[in-house]
Write a protein that binds this DNA or RNA. Structure first.
Lengths: 256, 256
DNA sequence: GGAGAATGCG
DNA sequence: CGCATTCTCC
């Protein structure tokens, strides 16, 4: 079973690339982020034609998440349903082949200590509570998406540049760790303890060409899945060429 | 000698189609309208690679006219140079193979009796004065472009719909006639006295598919050229397919 | 740098 | 409807 995450930066603008990638990468499940469209505008037909069902939580202009799967996702839950007044479409959960899959688009956080930054830290805390309330670490869980956090120094291209910057502040990394302490494993890091590889590169300043990126997209799994983990990687090729997303897909593979 | 006119509705957005059309239609001269870019952004290299020199009078966002020719245009004159404070780039003149060619983008006129409408009528009068001051009817002249006037009932798809509408009001048609009275002939109408054929179709309402158009793009010639006229037509094919201009190219051919 | 939105124009 | 613009967000 292959589970992937990709921030596509507009599913409509990226439809051709997404379909091409589905056909070549053949993941069983893909968590998408930044759809940037409402449910009605989601390109269901083209994606179904490529062999994937879709559970969609869309939003106009910003955010929007989905779970694509070769088998039909069931028990779809949208948002965190924790009573917080939050209009952002950042979370969708569904069960695929016995695995509870959660597609997450964590807030970016903008400037350190801004309202957006506080919202980001709170989002992480709310997500942890969501897991505590609804799941057990012993269940097969896969939380996949754009987390907007580079967990460790090895996950940014230049620590001197990123020190204290949003995506890499101590508070964000602590919020991330608290979430993982539920019992989640960063599959890429588990497979490659010392590999410096990134999943996002700013469109500007030729950062991709210079490989000046950060690893902020992650596939996190609970123990039952982690025990089956056989491979994990970043699909750097998908960031190349014309009109790419600024994110590359990330994925993990699990034995039966 | 083949002389054409085409309102391309953004030369940059239409570059591929323009180059394809140049290669297939092989006009000696083409007058372009609605470049929608400044001189510096005009795609000179691609057009030179297609075998055409360019005299360009560009403008940001709106208007912009050019003369493309297989031989290099000389004595380029920009605008009407009549002392009127007019920022619109709507006229460029140049000599090509002994013919004085003038690329014209007449104002649209918006609502009848609006300021834009009055500007349009005045533009026609100014153009007539331009000819009177600088040229004689006995010289070889070709005025080509988007005239935003359908001269006769046969030039609109439905007279009942167009009666009294901008592009077809009596005042506009009179202004057009006064211009032609300098000694200019509508080459298409001269070749096809009874043919109902259009050069512009609104993008909306499937007007092209229904052939609900108007003939507002014209190649006008003075007697020395008119005497050599052997063919004239509208290139309706160029309006088909994906991302067309709303105008089709029009052209006239002259024997040696 | 690239996405979507809103706006003006034709 | 489709282009170019200005705006905001990341």
């Amino acid at each position: 079973m292959k589970i992937a995450a990709w921030n596509v930066n507009s599913v409509r603008a990226r439809l051709d690339r997404l379909v091409d990638w589905l056909k070549s990468a053949q993941p069983d499940v893909v968590c998408l982020q930044e759809l940037k469209c409402v449910d009605a505008d989601f390109p269901r037909e083209a994606i179904l034609a490529a062999g994937y069902h879709a559970a969609v939580h869309g939003q106009k202009t910003y955010n929007g998440v989905a779970i694509l799967a070769k088998t039909e996702p069931t028990d779809v839950v949208v948002g965190l349903s924790d009573g917080v007044d939050d209009t952002h479409a950042r979370v969708i959960s569904a069960t695929v082949d016995g695995v509870r899959v959660i597609s997450v688009y964590a807030p970016n956080g903008q400037e350190v200590e801004s309202d957006a930054y506080k919202y980001k830290l709170e989002f992480y805390a709310r997500l942890r509570r969501y897991l505590d309330a609804r799941h057990k670490p012993g269940e097969p869980l896969a939380l996949c998406g754009d987390w907007n956090v580079a967990p460790e120094p090895i996950d940014v291209w230049d620590v001197a540049v990123w020190e204290g910057q949003t995506l890499f502040t101590l508070k964000e990394r602590a919020a991330w760790k608290t979430l993982c302490d539920f019992g989640l494993t960063d599959t890429f890091r588990a497979m490659h303890p010392d590999v410096k590889k990134f999943s996002w590169w700013d469109y500007r300043m030729l950062q991709f060409q210079k490989n000046q990126g950060v690893r902020i997209d992650h596939v996190l799994t609970s123990a039952p899945l982690t025990q089956r983990l056989v491979a994990a990687d970043v699909d750097r090729e998908a960031r190349k060429g014309k009109q790419p997303s600024d994110h590359a897909p990330v994925w993990a593979e699990f034995k039966a």
